[in-house]
Structures are given as structure tokens and as C-alpha cells.
Nucleic acid binder design. Structure first.
Lengths: 151, 151
DNA sequence: AAATAATAAATGTATTGACATATAATGTAA
DNA sequence: TTACATTATATGTCAATACATTTATTATTT
């Protein structure tokens, strides 16, 4: 009885429609709560996302194109996002030796340190998710995979 | 095995983390596909959302504040959103008789006609959701409610 | 090798959104 | 009734985003 009260709507076309609205609503709820936490560290969600991608590959460099492919929301102008991180000394950008079109992006020590701090915040954020058991979390994830038709 | 390949990430901190990323990724996938369809009719998702809220109450007027409360992503500047719809003659805006601070917003015939067309598009969009059975859709929706702690 | 296509990234521009603040009307308390 | 708080909406400003285009480099074709 919840999404109904949250968006003050009692009728849905059908189960799938209710599910779709619920997905959008729940995700908006979830990512807003993350944005609030990140703002205290002067980061946006996409910036945080990029930093974690870079840490995942560290110390290997990552090209802008790779970043785009790995991002949650495939975005067009990732290079300006990298600019922002560069301005904060959280990443460094060097010309890729094999391909002079491309650019190698690497997270800096400062970036790693910031992410280290944010891990605690992230733990805190993830606590919210524990209304679901581990089993339920897996179940939800599997349903999402199936929804996208990739099972 | 899917979110892993879609965002090229094989390791997650834990089941809940994987679920959270999957939620964000799947919802982004879902709403992007809707945006693409809407753009052909020169509407954004929030605008479409507002129009449907107005249709839901039609012919009763809806105040801007009500719109905000009913929206998926609670947004600060709903009045400029109404402006946009007004400019396209999809809604009309009149001063609320009982409360001169408030504004009554009503969907126009043109707005209703547009939504009528878009219903077909929406059906089409919802077809995507049928990788899940009705039962699975309900299951997913219930898990989302539970995730938000509102069960 | 020259011409053409394809790829990686950056940039221009207009729109959208976030956030704080302003304006106006109403409600409430002294 | 005046002062003060609250509510409803609008606006100013700046950052973020979308989308198209541009530049530079590499790959492919003839």
C-alpha cells in the first residue's frame, strides 16, 4: 500500500504500470538520498560514479570512452565531467601513448583518499537498503535483469 | 549475469550494492527509452508526468503544490514546468477562487487529445516490461515497497 | 599513397534543473 | 488590528545535461 500513498495515486493501469512507476519513484528516492550525502563532499553522483570506475581500474588508465561505457547513465559529455574532477585534482589526464586521439584518465592519490572517506558514507547509505534481506536483494536484482530481457 | 556485462563490472561489494546499482541502471534504461518516444511529440518526461496527473483529476483543477506532491521526482520548480505546458496550450491556469495565492491548473482538450495519442505509445513502451509476468511484476513492486521501508 | 570513413574527445548552444530568495496572500496570536 | 508566521507560487542565478557539430587522429579502401 505504499507507492500508492507516496504519489497519491490509487489506480494504475495494471501490475506492470504500477511496477514501472514504482521503479522510477524508488530509484529517485534512492539516488536523491545519495546526492544529499555526496553534496557534503562537493561531489555529484555522476562524478562519484566516475571516480569509482577509475578506482576500479587503478592504477590502469581509463579512456573517456571506457568511462561512458561503464557508467550507469550513459552520458554524452563525459569529457566535461572529467574536467570538473581535474579541476579538483581528483584525476589526472594524459595523452594515450598508442592512440593520440584518446586520453588516459587516472585517479590521483587525492581522489583515492576522498573515495576512502566516502566509503564510510556509502556504508551508511547502504544501510538503508537493509529493509531487504540478502536473499531478497538478490531476488530483486534478478527480477531487474529479467525485466531488461538480459537473462 | 547481466548488470555485470552491461556496466562491465564483475565485482560488487555485496548483494545489496549490486541491487542498488542494478536499480539505478535499469531505471535509467527504462526512462531513457520513454524519453526517446516522448521526444517525437516534443514532450519531456516530467511534462508528460504532469499532464497525466492533470488528466487523473480532470475536470477538477490541480494546484501547483498538488502537482509537486504527486510527481515521481519531487521537483522544486514546477511552476516553470506549467509555463512550458501553457505555452503549448496543453493546460490552462486560472487563479484559485478561494485562495488568491494558489493557481488552478487544468488540462485542456488539446492536452487530453495529446495524451490520448500518447496512450498508444505508452502501451508500446509497456510491452518492454513483459519480460516479467504479472506475478513477477507484483513481486518486484512489493520488493520495492519493502526496500523503501514502507510496508 | 591519396581519399574516405571511422573513432575519440572536445566544444557551442540551448534547455533543464537545483537552490536560494522574493512576492503575495492567508492564517494566527498578541 | 497590527505584527508575525506560514503557505503558494514565481523568479534570479548558476550548474548540469542534451544534442549537434567540430577537431584531431587512426583505420580502411581504392
Amino acid at each position: 500500500m505504499s507507492i500508492e500513498t507516496d504519489i497519491k495515486q490509487t489506480k494504475f493501469r495494471n501490475a506492470h504500470h504500477r511496477m514501472a512507476l514504482n521503479l522510477i519513484y524508488t530509484t529517485s528516492w534512492l539516488s536523491n538520498s545519495q546526492s544529499v550525502l555526496l553534496k557534503a563532499h562537493d561531489l555529484t553522483s555522476p562524478q562519484y560514479n566516475v571516480l569509482r570506475i577509475l578506482r576500479g581500474q587503478h592504477p590502469k588508465p581509463v579512456q573517456v570512452n571506457d568511462i561512458i561505457e561503464r557508467m550507469m547513465d550513459k552520458m554524452s559529455n563525459a569529457s566535461r565531467l572529467v574536467d570538473k574532477l581535474l579541476a579538483k585534482d581528483l584525476v589526472k589526464r594524459t595523452e594515450c601513448p598508442h592512440d593520440r586521439r584518446a586520453v588516459d584518465v587516472i585517479i590521483t592519490e587525492k581522489g583515492l583518499a576522498l573515495l576512502g572517506e566516502l566509503d564510510k558514507m556509502q556504508d551508511c547509505w547502504e544501510e538503508q537498503l537493509h529493509h531487504l534481506s540478502e536473499q531478497e536483494a538478490n531476488q530483486l536484482s534478478n527480477l531487474l535483469d529479467k525485466l531488461r530481457g538480459s537473462v
